[in-house]
Nucleic acid binder design. Sequence first.
DNA 1: ATTTGATATTTGATGCAACAAATTTGTTGC
DNA 2: GCAACAAATTTGTTGCATCAAATATCAAAT
Lengths: 233, 233
Amino acid sequence: MFSDLTDPILKSAAEMPLVPIDRQTSLGELAYASLKEAIVRGEFSAGQKLTVRAVAQALEVSTTPARDAIMRLIGEGALVNAGPKTVIVPPLTKTALDEVTAIRLVLEALAAKIAAANISPETIDKLKTLQSQINSALDAGNYSAALKANKAFHFLIYQTAKMPRLTTMIESLWVRIGPSLNDLYPEFATSRVGVSNHMEAIAGLESRDAARVQAAIEKDIRDGYRRLATRVE
Amino acid sequence: MFSDLTDPILKSAAEMPLVPIDRQTSLGELAYASLKEAIVRGEFSAGQKLTVRAVAQALEVSTTPARDAIMRLIGEGALVNAGPKTVIVPPLTKTALDEVTAIRLVLEALAAKIAAANISPETIDKLKTLQSQINSALDAGNYSAALKANKAFHFLIYQTAKMPRLTTMIESLWVRIGPSLNDLYPEFATSRVGVSNHMEAIAGLESRDAARVQAAIEKDIRDGYRRLATRVE
DNA sequence: ATTTGATATTTGATGCAACAAATTTGTTGC
DNA sequence: GCAACAAATTTGTTGCATCAAATATCAAAT
């Protein structure tokens, strides 16, 4: 015991089984997260103007972090510049919905396909838990909880693909439709069209059938599209 | 003559034959464009640290526009945060290249497919002009000109799809591999592997054969991938 | 009453100073 | 030499004042 105290426990810090903590707790980061959340929740009506000073005042920070957050959201398409000095939350036009859906189809299909090869039993358990959460949220009429669990369900699959850049890109697409999803209640709650697609996706993952998972996700996207399309234009 | 002076020349401004000018000439915008250009040209070695003040000084602006530019480029993945106070231009690892290529394949294939349905004879002429520019640039050994014309060729096709959000996403992927492309000279110049793919794409567009265009673009991406893959790791 | 023009207000952009955190450099002790 | 500690410097963040441009308000004229 203690036979060789000069021998270091670890040869370098890189060998420590720890993941670096990300200190992304700047006010700009918080403002970004907070504003994005509000947009996805549909707190702003489409076309509503956002000013730097108004956002700064609402978040109780100075103009700089507020401006950071707005510019960042413009960069990923969650907000748009509609004039020289006016940024608005973009209304979801039919054209935009068509384009976003076409991109979602290829991107989320890719993620789903690769996820099927990387799936673990633990992740499948979590997916089943999330699906039951969706069901009970719908039963309880808690629509926003159902939306949240639905998003968690999809992104748990996508994250399984271990393609972080892909996941980020998909996220930016969801932000653009997020606001409009809130208008779908209660139609979405009663129809429960997503449930069977999710069950099919889980079944495909369990049998590691990439094509089956991909088809289930694609159908889920198309079903959602049809509902959204009736609400725009 | 002058029979009815009370009649207005134009009923509304909307009837005037003018297109609105876009005033996107803020310093932040210019700094962003300039910095992105420099990154794609490979001016910075992979892993090189970028500081707000250094960029500000180089561009002869204050910290604010420089910070705007850096944050924006971080947002689209052209720069990455590698530590609490260090942003670097990310080295292209094999993993990153694999992921970006997989995404490019589905996204650019989608754009190419839709472009085939929207193509006009004028655009095909422009594509042929660009291809001849690529050839003569390669003949002259002007590699950076060849790269620039190659990019123009691809994006002229993608823009034909009339999906602006898709084009932006593809652009952000090109920025990530751009720096490494410069290391490929002169191998790329001598092999001229891209030429046949481009001719095939043009032929497919002329006959409006979406599958053929898509296949040509996919092959072009895969060929480029093989060359890049030998240089990373 | 509607339009035109001037005035006032709002707003994004920009620069800069102050601060805190992180890094680098220097120094001391062994 | 080298490890440990401390001082100095670098650096991102934040707030704010200022400016010019855009928008809104209002009055006068037709």
